[in-house]
């Protein structure tokens, strides 16, 4: 089996003005594995995720998707050059992103949201895109809502549609940015259930989350971020069972109560 990781992040840095949010983060995500990122607010989790698909342009470091460098190329003189947007867009198609606020487009039906990018970015015809869209909606158990508008759905349903929309691009990996943080507790479970199913199907996933239960049960590896650095990483049994870092221990003791 090809051992190239689905996502490789090398010494990633990001500053906003003088504020250094990411101070050099490196990790690999193997194909078919689930990596959860935990940490306090402001630790850099979301910024890290947004740097992976270049919604934020990293200040330094590299991201590789399936071995291919994302966003930057090093030219003959060894200079790092930002790639044109078209090239970044081509690689973004391979990374499905799910946002905290769902970000469904209110003027399109559920199916319209799901098939928009397959049709207009991948160039699929409507019939094929619709078939694919129905399939993706079935995976998130919302086939019956295909013709509804997002405003008529609950938050949990909206987030599942957002997951279907990302899946419809048939990405190599899915990025989840606190997907349940703006949901009521009773709606969180239906979203987490869908995410567990995806994980079970072998979807490569990076999940930024405050759901410690999900991080512990559903991920292969857990990263604990603190102040823009990975403070602790390992399999969930280790990070949750016997964390080496004192800060991680404190964070977990607060969040596992």
């Amino acid at each position: 089996m090809d051992a190239t990781p689905a996502i490789r992040v090398v010494d990633l840095r990001k500053s906003f003005g003088t504020l250094e949010v990411l101070k050099g983060v490196s990790f690999d995500v193997d194909r078919g594995s689930v990596v959860s990122m935990i940490g306090a607010s402001g630790s850099g989790k979301s910024t890290l995720l947004r740097c992976i698909n270049f919604l934020e342009t990293p200040s330094g470091g590299e991201v590789y998707i399936d071995g291919e460098p994302m966003g930057f190329r090093t030219d003959a003189t060894g200079q790092r050059r930002l790639q044109p947007l078209s090239e970044i867009n081509r690689m973004r198609r391979d990374l499905g992103m799910v946002f905290q606020q769902f970000n469904l487009w209110p003027h399109m039906t559920v199916l319209g949201n799901v098939i928009e990018a397959p049709m207009r970015v991948r160039g699929m015809n409507r019939k094929r895109a619709a078939a694919l869209g129905e399939e993706c909606l079935a995976r998130v158990h919302l086939s019956e809502k295909a013709r509804e508008y997002p405003a008529r759905l609950s938050g949990g349903q909206q987030q599942r549609v957002a997951i279907a929309r990302a899946l419809a691009m048939q990405p190599k990996a899915m990025l989840f940015d606190e997907p349940t943080s703006s949901l009521d507790p009773e709606l969180t479970d239906e979203v987490l259930a869908v995410m567990r199913e995806l994980a079970g199907d072998g979807t490569t996933m990076i999940v930024v989350t405050h759901e410690m239960g999900f991080a512990r049960d559903a991920s292969d590896r857990v990263l604990f971020l603190h102040n823009g650095l990975i403070e602790e990483e390992g399999p969930p049994e280790q990070v949750f069972g016997a964390p080496r870092s004192e800060r991680c221990r404190q964070f977990l003791s607060k969040h596992l109560q």
């Binding site: 698909n53 081509r90 973004r92 992103m97 928009e116 990302a166």
Partner: peptide, 8 residues
């Protein structure tokens, strides 16, 4: 951003 993230 949802559009950009899908490569639009």
């Amino acid at each position: 951003e949802a559009g950009y993230a899908l490569g639009m």
